[in-house]
Structure formats: C-alpha cells, structure tokens
Design a protein around this nucleic acid. Structure first.
Lengths: 218, 218
DNA sequence: TGGGTCGCTGTGAGGCCGCTGAGGAGAAAC
DNA sequence: GTTTCTCCTCAGCGGCCTCACAGCGACCCA
C-alpha cells in the first residue's frame, strides 16, 4: 500500500511517515501544493493524506484539480481550522474524509483504513472468442470453462490473436509483436508455438492460411 | 435517494427526518437496533444514519451483522461518546463514517453527501480468501481460525495480495506498493518474502505464474 | 505423378527464472 | 554488551521454457 503525504510542517510530515511506515505502508512525502498535485497525478498511490494549508496551492485546490482531471485517488484531508463550514467545504470539493488538527493517530489510522477498504478496482475486460476466454488480470485462460495452462510465450501469442479474431495475422507481424522485435528469431519459432497452442486449445481453433499467416476461428 | 435513520431519541430523530426531507431525501425512521437492522436488510436504502446507543442492539452490532451478511449499505454512525478509541471502533466494525454528538447539521449533510457520492463500499472490514482471514484493524491473520504470526513486511505483502485475490500481481507492482518505492530493493526480495509467506500460510495458496508474477489462490 | 515450396513436430541444448540457505546490517529488547 | 528479530543481499542450484535444427508431411502446380 503506497501513501502520499502532502504536508509542509516537516515535524508532522516526518512523524506521519515514520508512523505509517511502521504499519507497513510505503510512504512518500511532498511539502508543497504543486509538488503534491504532481505526485498524485503520476504516482500510482493507493491514498493521499493532504494538508489544507500548503504553500503554492491549497489542499482544497489540489483535490479539486485532481477530481477535475478524473483522478479518483482516495483523499484524507487535514486541517488546523475547525469551523464546521470548513469541514463541509473540504468534503464537498472532493475529499473523501476530513480530520481536524490536532488529531489522534489512532483515528487517523482508522479513517485511512476505512478509506483504503473502499478503493475501486476496475477489472479489464475479459476477451472471449467462441468458448475461449482470456482474463488479462488473472492471466488465466479457459476453454469451455476448463482452465488451460499456458507458458508466457504461448499466452502472449494467444492474447495477440484473440484481440484480432477472424483476421489473418502474418508470421512477421507476430514476430514483431509477440516476440521481442530487437532480437531476431527464426520465423519457425512462430510455427513451433502455434503448434503448442493447437495442442492446448484445440487443433481446429487456429487455422493456417498458407503463404499468409494464421487465423483464429471465431 | 432513500435514507434510513435509526435513532431512539425521538426529538433528534424527528429533527433529522424533517431536515433531510427538506433536502429532498426520502427518510424512514426506526428507533431500536433490531428494527433498524431489519429495515436495512430489506429496505433498498441508499444510506443509513445510525446511532450507537440503541435499545435491543447497539449500533456497532447492527453494522457488524449487516457486513457479515454481505450488505454494503453506506453507514454514517452517530455517537454521544467522544473517546478516540470509540471512534476507531466504529469505523473498524464496518461503518463508513462517524460523527460525534453534538454535531452540526451542515457537517452531517456534507458527510452524508460524501458518503452517497462514493456509494456502497466494496470490501468487507475483514478480508477473507478461502480459509485465510486478515483483519486490518487488529493487524491479525488467521488460517483456518489458527492465528499466524507475521512480520511487518510479510503482513503488508499478504494484505496487498488479499485485496486482489485470483489476480496475477507482478513483482514490480509488489515492489512499488509493498516496498517503499524510493529505496530500490532487489526483485529477489519479493521472492524471498513469498517464500516466507508460503511457509506460514501454506505452500499451495500462493501460485507462481512464471514470467508474470504471483497469484493468491481463491 | 513428380518436384518444389511451405508448414509441422520431435529432439536436444542452452539459458533464464524462481527458490532456498547462508549470512550480514541494523534496530530493538534484555 | 549481548541476544534476538527482521530485513535484505548474494550465490548456487534445479527446472522449465525457449528456440534452433532437421527430417518429414502436406499442398500446389505442371
């Protein structure tokens, strides 16, 4: 679990970093609004702890811009002010939760966990061709609901073919996309792997188009 | 938007009902724990506002049972107590947010809207995969109800894997999320820790997907 | 029917990937 | 200071995967 802490008070930032790391989180720290926004945009974090008072760009503004750019990273806001409108503002501008300083570490942790619990996993589509199914996330292939064990190369080959069902795909194209284009492999390797695949997914699923390439039967 | 308010102080319950109705919500009120639980189970509400102190069944217990039955209705808890552990307890037993009485109506509304925005939480408090259970709040892992002692790193690794059961997770992804991205760790560390985990949770629970990563068996 | 071309497959070597035991560094407990 | 615990690196090993090769079969065209 990677966290981004954006906080300009260095003592607090350091305390948070150490405490959260002790809980097993990986923690990066930024100390200004713009730097925090940038990190959140590019970083692949699971959640963000964000101070409201920041140099350069306020915490409110950071969240607003993130949301405007369709980033849905869970955000826990921290603020020294404790007026109620302030809190409402924080939530309404797109933060997911709000803590008022001084806060207790226990509460912070509990809120953070609640936030991480509801993270939204989007699963990529499962490719389906006939009774063949390929799930990229699980890296799993089934044929008529029976799992098929594939090696890395076999899997990559089938993946490529299933994204272009019914089309004729040439050997050189396969060499370019499934094999590393840099190292020159003999075209025969394609034939070898087509052979392997046929044994596993069924001989008739993969047609040879003599002189042109291969076609995955729809 | 339909709301369920479970509150035994009739004045507060009435005030909430009128206020929220004025905002355009459809509001039903229950005044005991068991009645609230029942309504939540059958009612098709979009969110629930739940007092902790209730006759018959405490608010904690209501949420816990709901979650145990796989109901993921967003729950906003209300409590007169204000000890911090109390608040942490509320969140960890499955509530999505927490307000301490006395609270301001503005804050309640903001929190409620934030809750409705993010819809029902998708993940249970306790992560369960097969006979493995991981309780983030207690930082505890059991396998077939036997506690398993894990180090910080082992725990973080299992936590990450259990949030994506059945999916293949690459070593680099694990390095990024379970290890701190800033310090560069050798990819071999992942292999080592997968080895440790296997000894503790069972060799077959963690599959190797050669060339791709690891997969937690569902 | 025969020759040529293209594709298929069994064999085997080489290499990459992942696993594990050993051990050192650093922190914490005693 | 010593012991213990944890984290992580390193090196060696074992196994599976990959792919080249060569011989054979299939297909196409006179």
């Amino acid at each position: 679990m990677r966290l981004l802490v954006v906080e300009d008070e260095s003592r607090l930032a350091f305390a948070l970093q150490r405490g959260l790391q002790a809980e097993g989180f990986a923690v990066d720290v930024e100390s200004t609004g713009p730097a925090g926004l940038d990190a959140a945009r590019h970083g692949g974090y699971d959640a963000m702890i964000l101070d409201v008072m920041l140099p350069g760009l306020s915490g409110y503004e950071v969240v607003r811009r993130l949301r405007a750019e369709e980033h849905w990273l869970p955000v826990l806001m921290l603020s020294a002010k404790d007026g109620e409108y302030d809190q409402a503002d924080g939530l309404d501008c797109g933060a997911d939760d709000y803590l008022t300083k001084p806060f207790s570490y226990v509460v912070l942790l509990a809120r953070l966990r609640a936030l991480l619990r509801r993270g939204a996993p989007e699963r990529p589509t499962v490719l389906t061709v006939g009774d063949l199914r390929l799930d990229p996330a699980r890296r799993r292939v089934t044929r008529a609901d029976v799992e098929v064990a594939l090696t890395t190369r076999e899997y990559a080959l089938l993946d490529y073919l299933m994204r272009r069902p019914g089309e004729v795909v040439s050997k050189t194209e396969l060499l370019d996309h499934v094999w590393d284009a840099s190292l020159d492999t003999a075209p025969n390797a394609v034939e070898v792997y087509v052979g392997y695949l046929r044994r596993k997914i069924g001989r008739d699923r993969l047609e040879t188009v003599r002189g042109a390439g291969y076609r995955l039967a729809t």
